[in-house]
Design a protein around this nucleic acid. Structure first.
Length: 596
RNA sequence: GCCGGUAUAGCUCAAUGGUAGAGCAACGCAUUUGUAAUGCGUAGGUUGUGGGUUCAAGUCCCUCUGCCGGCUCCA
């Protein structure tokens, strides 16, 4: 048995899976079947809706194909011939791909694009009675595949070529590893990740709730969740004020005229209407803060000396996301941005972006978030009509961002077509517990809205000039950031962020007054303390998730106890107890202050 | 919005179409012991909503809602 890179085996397994499905459902039409993280998928068009009951059948057929040790044949076929054959077999999607190859369009579908042209011929691989166009590479014999290292995991709808207007196919997912053990390890890892799921922990720790009556995507923060939420907003405010940002406040509804001027209104359909007033003005919930902040800038004249002019606000925007897109705290309809707008002279752009990226670094270090990726989002060069402003300005903006990120020194990728309609942006993405990437930080450079809103400042030369605008959110949305943080810390927050910093457990009833006094003292010192009274056993309290995740635990009483990861303070007699608690309070305060 | 799942007690889950149960949590009593689990007891339900099939529905069918995982979207 030959050894192959796991990606090669996954690729061949995708073909084997397609072959197995074809044995079950001969009418199936195939889309594409690429390798993805930890496995592969194949897009299928068939009348029978696949579900989990079909998985064992398909897996069994795959295992049979592997057991038969079938040679994987590779050959090149002229494109016309291949096209004819695909059409004869009714493989319309394959035919479409071949058609594109033939006409030279060959639009990439995925990175794992399908073919490789060689003298006008197309690379094909055949396993038994299943032939698929594919550039490979593949294993030479199905006997080389790990027969018990793969598992079908899920089926999902996926549009042909990723376009909503195209027919929807069934995407059959599988995970695959070189051995049964590796597959088992992966499944165990997934089960562990499930325990860190912020939706699960949020409920267990009493942080937030959802109500079908209030509406989907509208999180209700309970007292403990609000403490974290508030602490995150406060932290960003402190950091920004230290850098000279000014905080502002705007109302949550606005006339549609504002968004018509900014260009948002026509471009997006996610704004929630509120009402039409007696004069016929239409109002919507604000879905972004930019135009309000522009109007704040325009409310007074500016000198070049005042720039950079930085305004900030932690404020909620409301977006009518499609129902299927919502997900816990990481995708909601009401999201609170730590939004800032920087109005800068053109010669200040570079230094301003450097300052912002510096702050970004500091924030990520504070939360010990090291595993993040940076993306520079630029225009889709094929569709310039989707964006405001002229080519030169866009080119210049994109260059500035690339240069800034290069200087910053983080690895990055450039994504075409991901820019905002008014300018390119730098995004920072962080993975959640099951490996999905979520955008947190965004830094957007905008030369277009300043013209649109006629923003001006008086320069050294006495003339009016337009500033550039930087749209920045470091946390992104506090809801999403909190969701990511809960999973990052698995619910065990650092002291300064923890909703309960000290749990005081009163062991015996005759210590009631003393316990209450300790809690009072802690709260007075600004420490978030909570009293757990002892009419239950300490064992029960300790295994309670809330208390387990509490950084400190004071046990009041006369029992010698120990608990993992918690400081235990014992009271021997009144006076000594007071000294112990006071020392502890001072230490705690110091630790909390040193948080960042 | 689309595809596939899914919804039973506060939580985790049981219950061939035939009287809705268990463990944990809660509460009470006992225990003063216990640091992944002290004992006994009590209470907790219009099985998400609305319809249908059936002598009989938690179970089968349809509707709506919510949730989960994808797709698309993501200012």
């Amino acid at each position: 048995m030959k050894k192959y890179p796991i990606e090669t085996a996954r690729h061949t397994l995708a073909h084997v899976m397609a072959y197995a499905v074809k044995q079950l459902y001969p009418d199936v039409k195939f889309g594409i079947g690429p390798v993805v993280d930890n496995g592969f998928y194949y897009d299928l068009d068939l009348d029978h809706p696949l579900n989990e009951e079909d998985f064992p059948k398909i897996e069994k057929l795959m295992q049979e194909i592997i057991a038969k040790k079938i040679d994987v044949e590779h050959r090149y076929i002229p494109v016309e011939e291949a096209l004819k054959e695909a059409e004869n077999e009714g493989q319309k999607y394959k035919a479409e791909l071949l058609e594109d190859i033939k006409s030279g369009k060959r639009m990439a579908i995925t990175d794992e694009d399908i073919e490789q042209q060689k003298d006008g011929k197309i690379s094909f691989y055949t396993i038994g009675e299943f032939t698929d166009l594919c550039k490979g590479p593949h294993v030479e014999n199905t006997g080389d595949l790990p027969k018990d290292g793969f598992k079908l995991t899920k089926v999902a709808g996926a549009y042909w070529r990723g376009d909503e207007k195209n027919p929807q196919m069934q995407r059959l997912y599988a995970v695959a590893f070189s051995s049964k053990k590796e597959l088992g390890d992966y499944l165990v890892m997934l089960a562990e990740a499930e325990k860190r799921d912020h939706k699960k922990l949020g409920k267990e720790l009493g942080l937030f709730a959802f109500s079908p009556l209030v509406g989907s995507g509208l999180p209700l923060f309970l007292s403990k969740g609000e403490m974290i939420f508030h602490e995150l907003g406060k932290y960003m405010r402190e950091e920004k004020e230290a850098l000279g940002y000014k905080f502002v406040h705007i109302p949550h509804i606005a006339k549609t005229d504002l968004y018509e001027k900014s260009g948002h209104f026509g471009k997006y359909d996610s704004m929630m209407p509120v009402m039409t007033d007696q004069d016929g003005n239409k109002f919507v919930m604000k879905a972004m803060n930019c135009p309000h902040h522009f109007e704040i800038y325009n409310s007074e004249p500016h000198s070049y000396r005042d720039l950079p002019y930085r305004i900030a606000e932690n404020t909620t925007v409301y977006r009518n996301e499609k129902s299927g897109e919502l997900s816990g705290l990481v995708r909601v309809k009401a999201l609170t941005q730590d939004d800032t707008h920087h109005f800068v002279r053109h010669d200040q752009i570079k230094s301003e972006i450097e300052m912002i990226l510096g702050l970004t670094d500091k924030v990520y270090q504070t939360f010990n978030l090291t595993d993040y990726s940076v993306q520079i989002s630029i225009r889709d060069p094929k569709h310039p009509e989707k964006y405001f402003g002229d080519d030169e300005v866009w080119k210049k903006s994109e260059e500035i961002l690339v240069e800034a990120v290069k200087k910053w020194g983080r690895p990055y990728v450039v994504e075409e077509g991901e820019a905002a309609f008014y300018g390119p942006k730098i995004d920072v993405m962080v993975k959640d517990s099951i490996g999905r990437k979520w955008q947190l930080t965004t830094v957007q450079l905008d030369f277009n809205q300043p013209e649109n809103f006629h923003m001006r400042y008086v320069g050294e030369d006495g003339q009016e000039h337009a500033p550039a605008v930087l749209h920045v959110a470091i946390l992104g949305a506090i809801e999403r950031f909190m969701g990511i943080l809960i999973e990052h810390y698995a619910g065990a927050f650092p002291l300064w962020l923890a909703p309960v910093q000290v749990a005081v457990i009163n062991i015996s009833e005759n210590q009631q007054a003393w316990s209450e006094a300790v809690v009072h003292k802690l709260k007075h010192a600004g420490i978030r303390a909570e009293l757990h009274n002892q009419n239950e056993t300490l064992g029960k309290k300790i295994r309670n998730a809330e208390v387990q995740k509490t950084p400190y635990l004071f046990v009041i009483g006369d029992k010698e106890v120990e608990a993992k990861s918690v400081a235990v303070r014992k009271r021997k007699d009144g006076d000594q107890g007071v000294i112990l608690i006071e020392t502890a309070v001072a230490q705690l305060k110091e630790e909390i202050d040193q948080k960042k």
